[in-house]
Simulated scan of single mutants.
Amino acid sequence: MIHFEQPVPSYDLTVSKGSPDYILGKLNDDKTESDWWSALGGAKALHEVFDRTECLIIIALPSPYLRMIAPFLSELPESTCKRIRIVGGRDARGLRPILESARLPYDDRLDGPQSFLRGTKSDFASRALRHFAEVVLSKAPLETAETHAKQVELALAAWRPPVTKVGVRVSDTDLKSVLREHWYRAGGRTTKLLRLLRDEMNIACEQKRFARLAAEVREERTLS
């Protein structure tokens, strides 16, 4: 287990399709994300973490990463599954029914006008986790998954989903120029840059495309 203050080497691997650093694009044979993760010792490490505690376990992951650990989760005993709550991973598959019932009903309302935790799709799971911890878990730490799900739904009941805006489309070249211009303002943080593009400049940019162009601009700045 890695402490939050422990420095780790930088890396560029992901299980999100469409990225140039997609791990399965770098492996031979018919391997899956779960195979790669298990080969790194991920399943063993999680078993050790889960076995050390009797407390509630909250899993906050986007869909590709939740699918990656789904085979591991399917091996857990029912007593452990009852201690799990899942946020994020709205398009995950392969979970046991008991774990599907542990999924909390966070959806696009988290990005609507009433939300105090708006953000990007890439940080949806962490924002949902914060909401659950601050609004629900702090008041009802010992409730069942069913009760927690009802309390989340109650907390979001008056929230509306965001209104989709049609942004202006620009070329890769123009978009990279905008990123360079606002790089210092955003402190080089891609999440903030994406919010500037969408909210202030009304520029349409699919998230994977944005990640690719931002990585290119970051590399330019590293080499300059």
Rank of each mutant, 00 (worst) to 15 (best):
L95K: 06
I86M: 09
R83Q: 03
L66T: 07
E48F: 08
G42D: 03
L46N: 04
K82Q: 13
P20T: 07
G42F: 11
L56I: 07
E78S: 14
C81A: 11
T32E: 09
F72E: 07
A39F: 11
T32I: 08
E54K: 05
E78F: 12
S38L: 04
C81M: 09
I86W: 08
S19T: 11
V87T: 14
L56K: 14
R52F: 03
Y65T: 08
I84G: 03
G94K: 13
I84F: 08
E75T: 14
L40Q: 15
R93C: 12
S63A: 07
L46I: 08
D35I: 08
D51V: 05
G88D: 06
K44Y: 11
E78V: 09
K82R: 14
G42L: 05
L61D: 00
R85G: 04
R85E: 05
L27C: 15
E100S: 03
R83C: 07
R83L: 03
R83S: 03
C81K: 14
A39K: 14
K44D: 13
E54R: 05
A39N: 11
Y65F: 14
T53P: 00
L40E: 13
Y65D: 07
P62Q: 01
L76G: 05
R96C: 10
L104W: 03
E48W: 06
T80P: 00
I84Q: 02
G89P: 07
K31C: 10
S19M: 11
P62G: 10
P62D: 01
M68Q: 10
L99E: 06
R83N: 03
E78I: 07
D91A: 15
R90V: 12
A43F: 15
S101H: 14
G41T: 01
L66H: 04
L73R: 12
T80I: 12
D29K: 15
A43G: 15
S34M: 09
A39Y: 09
I59S: 02
C81H: 05
S79N: 01
S101K: 15
